[in-house]
Structures are given as C-alpha cells and as structure tokens.
Amino acid sequence: MNTQAVLSIYRFEMARFFRTLAQSFISPVISTSLYFVVFGAAIGSRIAEVEGVSYGAFIVPGLIMLSVMTQAISNASFGIYFPKFIGTIYELLSAPVNFLEIVLGYVGAAATKALFIGVVILATSALFVDLQIAHPLAMIAFMVLTCISFSLFGFIIGIWARNFEQLQLIPLLVVTPLVFLGGSFYSISMLPPLWQTVTLFNPVVYLVSGFRWSFFGLADVPVGLSLLAILGFTALCLGIIWWIFRTGWRIRG
C-alpha cells in the first residue's frame, strides 16, 4: 500500500477546498437558511406537523442529505475530471499507485468535504429549529456512508465525463430530481397510494428515510432496508470503479 500517495492526493485535494473555504462554508449556510425561510415559513405554516414532528425539524434530515449528496458528487467528479481536463492525470497514471489508492485519496477528500458541509448545515439548522437526535451513532453512520457512496458515484461521473456539460448532466438531470422526489421535504405517506409505490423505486427514499429515522425514530421504509440500500449502492460504485481501472476505460489509452 502506497500510503504516502494516498495522503498526498488527500492533502492536495483538501488544499483546494481550504483555498475556497469561505465559499465552501457560506454557500451551504445561505442555501439552508433560504430553505428554512421558503419551506419552513411558507409551507410550514400550512403543515404544522408531520407525524408529531414540527415541519421545520422534519425537513432537516432531507436538507442535509440533499446537500451532502450534491456536494459529494460535485467534489468527487470535479476532483478527478479536472486532472483529466488539464492533463495532469499523466502523473497519476505513471505513478506507482493502484486504483484503490487513487480512490482512497480522491473519494476520501470529497467525502470529507461533503461531511463538513453536512455538519455545517446541521449546525445552521439548529439555529432555526429545535433538533433532537434519537440515534446519534446511526445518524453519523448514515451521513458518513452517504458521503462515501455519493463521492464514489461522483468519481465515476468524473471519469465518464468528456466535457464540463456532461459533468453537470447527471447531477442536474438525475440526482436533483431523485432527491426532491425522494421524500426530502415530505413523508411519502402523504402521497396518493400509486405515487407511494412509484416512489419506492427511488433509491434516495431509502437514504432519506433511514437518516430521518436516526433523528426522529420515524421512517418510511424499515431502517434495515435503508442500510442495505446504501451499502448496496456503495458496493455497486466500488465494483464499477474497479472495472474502470482494470480496463483503463476513459483514462488509459
């Protein structure tokens, strides 16, 4: 194991993050506050409570998930796409590192950044609503696993993308709609029966549900199923990345 390489990549990527710390920090705080104003104040005045939890508090897990997923994807995809775009990937390909070390470095850094944003949003939320966390360990586990799995997913997108447009395509056309339709801002029990069934095909539902359970003990789907979903997604992404490096797809000519 080339630990030096893993640490070098990790530090290099984190340095990029710290250079833009203000931006990385302020933007999630502002957007979270906006969500509270818009969803909390406007919709929350009509929906007082969801299953015994105030609407403002109810949307917190979904808000965190939304940001963590999009941040993990954009950080990881950009992290590996940028060297491809400017050509510095030659160094990575000619270095004595294997795919696991490259993934640990890039995905580790992207997941750390996403986790940081998640914690910032959690802290910001605490300013607006009374938060209770019923299962803190489970909460941390779900958050960390989501950071890791979506960073892996972002890494795949970054390797797949041939231009900046493609880099934005999947997050914009697939991930954001899935998150919005995945029960981030409502309980799926509030939907008509047909849509409840349709929604169960949305993988994000399982993540948000499990994460919300760790806060309020409320879940749309069983917690075990949520955990299985996120572990399955992580395994799938790892499998794809392993295949990418074995075949050199889109990175090694």
Binding site: Q4, A5, S8, I9, T88, A95
Partner: peptide
C-alpha cells in the same frame, strides 16, 4: 500539464508523495 492554481513547492512535494517517497 500543471494545475494553474497550485504553488510551485506544493506541486513538487505532491509528486514526491505520489511516488511513495516520504516528505
């Protein structure tokens, strides 16, 4: 092929680490 926003010393140190050599 170089990252435009990186610092000279850091980018050289990065390469060293990438090749498995201690700092």
């Amino acid at each position: 092929n170089l990252e435009p926003f990186e610092y000279v010393r850091n980018t050289v140190a990065f390469s060293r680490g990438l090749f498995g050599k201690p700092r």
